[in-house]
């Protein structure tokens, strides 16, 4: 908002002056609001993990079998990609706060690049699974036909595609808002003095990473009974 905003002063009965917090220029308010939004994401993914845990307890062996068939190498590479993207995002914010706008923009571009790499690997992974006949809507994941997988595996893959898909959707949104952030920086609306938007987008990106920190082991690692499985993937 306008940078010239001057907070109002309230005067009490003794004549002492108290600064009034307006909605303008409320950095802490912006941060608080964004954290509250992230709690809604926590509740959303929390509910999905609840579903996942419930079916895991019902169909233990099916889940482990299904998990063992996922490609752990690609999943692991994606984990590392996200790790580095979190770093570039953090360093970008740091550069912004220390006054290096150009460096900050470079770091945001790096983050976008890593996000695209993540999506690319994800696409390779899903394509391979599709070719194995495992994908939403394919016969293997429907009931009552000759290709039908057991209940536990249907549910595992149903949740797998839903949750990694939703996570991927968050990545796409993240790329979108990072491009928007770059536009705002170029327009001079986000500056070292006024970087709440950058701060919140960095928080968002860390949240996306945070979700992956739990999604990854829950889907990829529970069936990793031996080192060989790690190397061989499928």
């Amino acid at each position: 908002m306008s940078h010239e905003y001057v907070p109002e002063i309230a005067v009490d009965r003794e004549g002492k002056e108290h600064e009034v917090q307006g909605w303008q220029d409320d950095t802490y308010g912006g941060k608080l609001g964004f954290w509250l939004f992230m709690f809604t994401e926590v509740m959303m993914f929390g509910a999905m993990f609840l579903i996942l845990t419930y079916y895991f307890s019902l169909h233990h062996q099916d889940f482990i079998n299904a998990s063992a068939s996922l490609n752990r190498v690609l999943g692991g590479v994606n984990t590392v990609v996200l790790l580095f993207s979190a770093l570039t995002m953090g360093l970008g914010l740091l550069k912004m706060r220390s006054g290096d706008v150009k460096g900050a923009k470079l770091m945001i571009w790096a983050t976008i690049l890593l996000a695209i790499v993540f999506l690319g690997i994800k696409a390779v992974e899903w394509t391979a699974e599709y070719q194995h006949g495992v994908f939403l809507g394919l016969e293997a994941l429907q009931a009552g036909n000759e290709f039908s997988k057991p209940f536990g595996e249907i549910l595992f893959f149903g949740m797998y595609f839903t949750m990694t898909g939703l996570h991927g959707f968050h990545i796409i949104i993240g790329i979108g808002i990072m491009l928007w952030l770059l536009k705002r920086i170029n327009a001079g609306k986000v500056t070292p003095h006024h970087h709440i938007l950058h701060f919140n987008i960095a928080l968002y990106w860390d949240l996306v990473h945070l979700i992956w920190v739990f999604v990854f082991p829950y889907f990829y690692m529970i069936g990793a009974g031996d080192i060989a499985g790690v190397v061989n993937g499928h």
Binding site: M44, F45, A47, M48, I51, Y55, H59, L136, G137, L141, Q142, A143, G144, P150, F151, G152, I154, L155, G158, M159, F161, T162, L166
Partner: peptide, 23 residues
């Protein structure tokens, strides 16, 4: 919200989360 999304996905793709015929 997520429950409704899962129900929508169920109707489109049959992910099976709430459908007893798929477990």
């Amino acid at each position: 919200g997520i429950t409704l999304i899962l129900a929508i996905l169920e109707k489109f793709f049959g992910i099976g989360i709430f459908d007893p015929s798929k477990g």
